[in-house]
Design a protein around this nucleic acid. Structure first.
Lengths: 239, 239
DNA sequence: CGTAGTTTTGAGAGGCGTCAAGGAGCGTGG
DNA sequence: CCACGCTCCTTGACGCCTCTCAAAACTACG
């Protein structure tokens, strides 16, 4: 354990409701504390893990913001997700014992390290935890299917509107505003995630501003008309 | 149990190496047989499950061919995957106890029904099975990331070449030819999966034929130059 | 206050979607 | 056995959305 790691406890963590299965008794939470033995700090711009790294642990984001991305043989890359506090990173590594994507901190961050062997061990003991792990993986699969839908069948405006609505919704679940957000990623990273070039992302932002739907000042975005965004995503059902 | 369901045994299944964890002893396989209690036949065109259906079981494809797809509020849909013998369907349902996609048979098919509660129960008993279940879910996540890469950063020719190479590779692993295949899905379904219109799929097929890379006769495809396909997917590394 | 990284905006090109028509395969029924 | 209709597939013409290339403005930071 080096200076990058610190001792912590789930039982005293304010992200408990996001990370952990509901309805654990005190004894069970105690045992969970033994799983999450350490935290690790990641500086902005550096990687939690890279493609090919040995898989040992899952990571729960405690603070900060991550992107995960995969790369083609010829260097193009695709952001597969953005992760914020309470979300789990590393599930990609289970199948082959090595990570198949990079996880990079977009701002100084801290993660809880959960050695996977211990997760599996404790899962055999607690039905609740076992089911929770299954749900986390299933949630990721369902999320991925949503991204496929976005990439496969939506146009630029729909993609960006969907993206913004998804971000504020997740931020709101963490106690932040429903109408204001600070983007932690560049236009290029947004574009990579949404299957668009950075210029198209920028242009689409500008279009939304022109239409009075949002205000944008660099990374800061204020949503002035949420319903308008919803109408862009889903022309029929709204207003 | 109706006429659609039949009694079976993993221990005598020739897909064992695809479906099951390696290195089980006879006693363990015996217990597995209790999980896969029944099979179910699905007629071409009908659904194994639909969006919103209660989630109860995972399904292992025993024969036939499936597609899974999600739908937007306004009716556009996206094929999220094609599943063949030995592959697992239904993981999407775990997180919310309801299925979030449709699974439709593209030809008459048969699946092994694995009630998920029993899977979880036995997973707590066998480390091997537990880890296998985790790997299956992780594999699906990694596969989904690959599809995102395809949808987000490839052009029509690369997408179709990738698709064909992936199909023959999976078929070859099941004892079929490396160079011939019969498509079980329509051009429209291929297009939905690859984020292209059916006309573009058809045109791209024709282009490959013109270039002497493949022969196409309706659903039948013969790959005449695998390396050429690989070069389309990855211009640098090949040839 | 200069430099590098990020973002915006413009102009032009091209890949893919859209619309439309025709053809091929296949099951059904006369 | 052939006619018929249905679904699926192919091909062409045209237009638009997004990419590409380019330049300039803005921010951050040393």
């Amino acid at each position: 354990m080096d200076a990058q790691t610190i001792k912590v406890a789930c039982s005293s963590c304010n992200l408990r409701e996001l990370c952990l299965p509901m309805g654990l008794n005190a004894g069970e939470i105690d045992k969970l504390d033994r799983i999450v033995s350490t935290r690790r700090r990641i500086k902005r711009g550096s990687a939690l893990f890279n493609v090919g790294d040995k898989f040992t642990s899952l990571y729960a984001v405690r603070s900060g913001f991550f992107k995960t991305c995969v790369t083609t043989a010829d260097g193009r890359d695709q952001v597969t997700g953005f992760q914020m506090a309470g979300e789990i990173i590393g599930l990609d590594g289970i199948v082959s014992d090595r990570h198949s994507c990079d996880a990079v901190a977009l701002e100084d961050a801290e993660v809880c390290v959960m050695p996977f062997e211990q997760v599996e061990e404790l899962s055999r003991e607690f039905t609740t935890l076992q089911h929770h792990v299954h749900k986390i993986m299933s949630r990721e699969i369902v999320r991925d299917h949503g991204v496929m839908l976005l990439l496969g069948s939506m146009r630029a405006e729909e993609r960006l509107a969907t993206f913004l609505l998804n971000l504020v919704q997740r931020l709101h679940a963490r106690g932040f505003s429903q109408s204001e957000l600070v983007l932690r990623m560049t236009r290029e990273e947004i574009g990579s995630y949404l299957g668009m070039k950075l210029e198209t992302v920028s242009r689409t932002f500008s279009k939304f501003v022109d239409e009075g739907i949002i205000d944008v000042k660099q990374r800061y975005v204020q949503i002035k008309d949420t319903d308008a965004l919803r109408r862009i995503v889903n022309p029929q059902n709204c207003g």
